[in-house]
């Protein structure tokens, strides 16, 4: 990249720290300071969640729309709860029951939402890049990516990092093992960016058919690559050795039909996180799962509900982190330069 372009990008860089970031599309451009700010703000939000009266007037008069083109429990409900606890008005739109069913385009749907005066939209879409497309075409409304295709799920990554930090302190140098369908996982992709920014040692573990080709062929192992420290291990026992955090991913049942796996049972036998396997990790290793779980496939029920499991805490922290993000994003300074973040 010619240096003049680099300089230009630096000038256009938006940040939560100075209130210039209006959209949350992914965490690939997040700095450590921004992750820090989200974590510290989330601490204050957790305190609000622990009160008898858990409501503060912060976003009174702001309108937040959740626009979900794909099924979701956790993300949608926690955004709705987060918005309501901050006193924003939250409107839920799903593809069924709205004009989307009549064939309205994504662009027209979001322009309509903007025209109604909404301040922020949280979108989940089956196509990677849909939130970027929306952000490019909106003037006054902010966009939070609530999961797009296989591409990104930034709020999940931020809540995972927050959960780890609450238990481990700084996570730089910690060994974090993500096990499962990396290839199709937006959770894994966003976590890779957030965790490497925090300086963690990330190990991806899966059958070769479920690991992205760039990683499998070692193309990322060059110094300038931002993910050059990420390690690949196809043997789960080797991967888990000494791990500080273990994060199995949901194995989608369709993967078997598409021929990427022989059978679910075989996957479970080779890669499922069981008591015995978790014991290979460091003592008191943390167990996270982005949900929803297929118990008995990628995770056995006894560890999913065992003492090392933080799965329910992740959901609670998810509300706090989303409150923090709404607080930091709604009403951010509008400026021309924010165009840089949507390129």
């Amino acid at each position: 990249m010619p240096s003049i372009v680099k300089e230009e990008n630096k000038r256009l860089k938006t940040s939560l720290v100075d209130g210039t970031r209006r959209h949350l599309l992914d965490v690939d451009d997040f700095t450590r300071d921004e992750i820090d700010l989200v974590s510290k703000t989330s601490d204050a939000m957790l305190e609000v969640l622990a009160r008898d009266i858990k409501k503060v007037p912060t976003l009174r008069g702001k309108v937040i729309v959740t626009l979900f083109y794909e099924a979701s429990t956790r993300t949608r409900v926690s955004f709705e709860e987060a918005g309501k606890l901050l006193s924003a008005d939250v409107i839920n739109v799903s593809s069924s029951g709205s004009s989307v069913e009549k064939g309205e385009s994504l662009l027209n749907t979001v322009r309509t939402l903007q025209a109604t005066g909404a301040d922020l939209v949280v979108v989940r879409h089956q196509h990677s890049g849909a939130p970027y497309f929306m952000a490019r075409n909106l003037e006054s409304m902010g966009v939070i990516n609530g999961g797009d295709g296989w591409h990104a799920h930034p709020t999940q990554a931020l809540l995972d990092v927050y959960t780890m930090r609450r238990h481990l302190g700084p996570i730089g140098g910690r060994k974090i093992v993500i096990v499962g369908d990396i290839l199709h996982s937006r959770v894994a992709r966003s976590n890779l960016w957030a965790l490497t920014t925090e300086g963690a040692n990330v190990v991806l573990c899966a059958p070769p058919t479920l690991i992205p080709q760039e990683f499998l062929s070692g193309q990322h192992r060059v110094d300038e690559h931002p993910l050059s420290t990420v390690e690949i291990e196809t043997n789960v026992e080797m991967a888990l050795d000494g791990a500080d955090v273990v994060m199995p991913l949901r194995l989608q049942l369709e993967r078997q039909e598409s021929g990427l796996l022989p059978t679910l049972r075989e996957y479970s036998k080779m890669y499922g996180i069981t008591r015995e396997r978790l014991d290979l990790a460091s003592k008191d290793a943390l167990l996270l799962h982005p949900g929803p779980m297929n118990e008995g496939v990628e995770i056995s029920p006894d560890v999913a509900h065992g003492s090392q499991s933080l799965i329910e805490e992740q959901v609670r922290n998810g509300v706090a982190v989303r409150m923090a993000l709404l607080y930091l994003l709604v009403g951010a300074t509008k400026r021309e330069e924010t165009k840089a973040e949507i390129q």
């Binding site: 209130g19 700010l37 510290k40 703000t41 601490d43 204050a44 503060v56 976003l59 607080y327 009403g331």
Partner: peptide
């Protein structure tokens, strides 16, 4: 979280009460 100038000035860091 109780300020009356949210959206008018830059966002202050919030701390736990």
């Amino acid at each position: 979280l109780y300020r009356d100038d949210i959206g008018r000035s830059s966002r202050p860091m919030v701390h736990s009460t």
